[in-house]
């Protein structure tokens, strides 16, 4: 299980309210829209959309799409 990058992109778009494009190389540093408020919006959407719950240290570690996908994968397998 887990999540496809397309599905993740949809979640990014509704969180950021903009048509952002993401790929495996996307990070907080190379995606200008990914500021702290949008990070907050992103977590709200992820927790709701995937029905999972993140711990504070996990939320802080999510600095790239790659980390995000791994984390979601790990959470979904539990």
């Amino acid at each position: 299980m887990g999540i496809t990058i397309e599905k993740l992109q949809d979640i990014f778009r509704s969180a950021f309210s903009s048509e952002v494009e993401i790929n495996l190389e996307t990070t907080k540093d190379n995606l200008p829209d990914w500021d702290s408020i949008n990070h907050l919006n992103l977590i709200v959407e992820l927790e709701d959309g995937l029905n999972i719950h993140f711990q504070p240290d996990e939320i802080e570690s999510m600095k790239s799409v790659k980390v995000l996908l791994d984390l979601i994968q790990k959470k979904s397998n539990v």
Binding site: S36, L40, I43, V44, E45, E47, D48, H53, F54, Q55, P56, E58, I59, E60
Partner: peptide
């Protein structure tokens, strides 16, 4: 309530509440 977000960002509500 979603306390992880609350304590990190001072925003304790989940999407449903919002």
């Amino acid at each position: 309530y979603t306390y992880s977000l609350g304590h990190l960002y001072q925003m304790p509500y989940n999407k449903k509440a919002i």
